[in-house]
């Protein structure tokens, strides 16, 4: 499909892809590659100007954003764009009321989401009084509360410290084991390297690479054409050719073991 903005900018050009149930997918590429535009098509905020987007068998042009959001929960980059309530609890309730859940389901779901994101103690605090990392967690809790089958995270690591990034990976893995499909956009290569999802590489509104993290992140020329720097472990292993080690995406421990092995021989 294709998307042309009203000002004439063609943000997506000949994009064609299929994402299956239970997949973890990272959309990568430099700023302006079309990552966010692609994600906004998933719940119908944007409709393709050519081609079709089908979510769970339904053409997005024939459904409202509210209907699609029930299935596809998008967590946007800037968490503060969504806060308006007096308390963390009310903030989390909002979407559930919009979707027409019953009162007892609402209170159960809100409690679950806040506990899951470790925000239970803040439930009566104002969302605006939270720290940056907590705001980001609340933004995620707000979406998880209605339990959409597909969870979309737009740049989940921006403004997060290392510890928060590790937690984010844990959360994504946990959601995935619960059967959720997780689609995220990022240009944080180390984060993606650790998560090891399926990677869709974008450049200038086109998909230029689609495959396992192990294959995409070791393809130096492809990464360079997208202005991405390979993960440190790949950079390291790519320089160990003289020892007979190939560029690979592996844990530091495995690489260390391999080096030790070669030295011993």
């Amino acid at each position: 499909m294709e998307h042309v903005y009203p000002n004439g900018v063609k943000a997506l050009d000949g994009v064609s892809l299929r994402i299956g149930e239970g997949e973890v997918v990272a959309v990568m590429g430099e700023n302006g590659a079309g990552k966010t535009t692609l994600l906004k098509h998933l719940n119908g905020l944007l409709k393709p100007t050519r081609g079709r987007v089908i979510v769970d068998g339904k053409d997005t042009r024939e459904a409202t954003v509210a209907e699609l959001s029930r299935k596809v929960g998008i967590v946007f980059q800037n968490a503060e764009d969504m806060f308006f309530s007096g308390s963390v609890w009310e903030e989390t309730e909002f979407a559930l009321r919009n979707f027409g859940f019953s009162e007892d389901v609402i209170s159960k779901r809100v409690e679950w989401a806040l506990r899951f994101m470790e925000l239970w103690d803040y439930r009566s605090k104002s969302p605006f009084m939270l720290s940056g990392g907590e705001k980001k967690r609340l933004a995620l809790a707000v979406i998880l509360a209605w339990s959409p089958e597909i969870i979309v995270l737009d740049e989940p690591t921006i403004g997060q410290d290392q510890l928060q990034k590790e937690k984010m990976i844990e959360v994504i893995r946990l959601l995935n084991t619960q059967g959720k499909t997780v689609i995220l956009s990022s240009h944080d290569i180390e984060f993606v390297a650790e998560l090891r999802p399926r990677i869709i590489l974008m450049s200038g509104g086109r998909i230029v690479g689609d495959g396992r993290a192990e294959d995409i992140l070791t393809n130096m020329s492809l990464l360079e054409s997208c202005r991405l720097i390979p993960p440190q472990i790949v950079q390291l292993t790519s320089r160990l050719g003289f020892m007979g080690i190939r560029a690979k995406l592996a844990s530091p421990e495995d690489v260390a073991k391999e080096i030790a092995e070669r030295i011993r021989v």
Binding site: L45, F76, M82, N98
Partner: peptide, 16 residues
């Protein structure tokens, strides 16, 4: 632009 991203965020939460 800000208004647009707020609208996007709230519509994604089922606001009509």
């Amino acid at each position: 632009q800000e208004l647009q991203s707020i609208l996007d965020a709230q519509r994604s939460r089922g606001l009509e």
